[in-house]
């Protein structure tokens, strides 16, 4: 009889049940907030890195243009006309045929052919690629984990 009245007294306390519901709700909200915060943090970092990647790509294009430009400038500075003018300024003059002394060197076959790149069929230089970790989102990463550990089957594969 005493036992029964104790159980009834506990179950009939309304504020306990309300507190319990509020507790569960608050825990759910906290969990959601934590997830949202985590997602926001990862997304913000991904955005920052993404922008950085974009700016690096633009920088690379700019540098490539700069290299091309500087090569052309160098070619202008060492053009035939410029070099001739410089040589004349330094007191040189074109050699006259009678003034040339030829020296025969055994085995010398003259200037070799210009080689600006390996011959076709030679060494292949692979193009470096950006790792996926730099571009995938949190959801992409979680999805990949699920796929990796077979949970993808639950998704209807």
């Amino acid at each position: 009889m005493r036992n029964k009245s104790y159980v009834q007294a506990h179950s009939q306390t309304p504020w306990r049940r309300q507190m319990q519901m509020i507790g569960f709700f608050a825990a759910a909200v906290a969990a959601l907030a934590l997830l949202a915060g985590l997602y926001l943090n990862v997304t913000a970092r991904a955005s920052t890195i993404g922008r950085h990647v974009q700016s690096l790509q633009n920088e690379r294009i700019r540098l490539q243009q700069q290299i091309e430009n500087m090569e052309s400038q160098l070619a202008s500075l060492t053009s035939n006309e410029a070099m001739q003018a410089r040589a004349t300024q330094l007191g040189f003059a074109p050699v006259q045929p009678g003034a040339v002394t030829y020296l025969t060197v055994e085995g010398y076959r003259g200037r070799p052919n210009l080689q600006l790149a390996p011959r076709a069929g030679g060494q292949f230089i692979g193009v470096p690629r950006l790792p996926e970790a730099y571009t995938e989102s949190l959801l992409d990463w979680v999805g990949k984990l699920f796929d990796e550990y077979g949970f993808g089957l639950l998704g209807g594969y």
Binding site: Q65, Q66, E68, A75, N113
Partner: peptide, 19 residues
Amino acid sequence: PPRGIIYDRNGNILAGNRT
């Protein structure tokens, strides 16, 4: 893509690219 460069037989640039 940048247009290819034209060299003479000794590697002097005859046609390049500028900004």
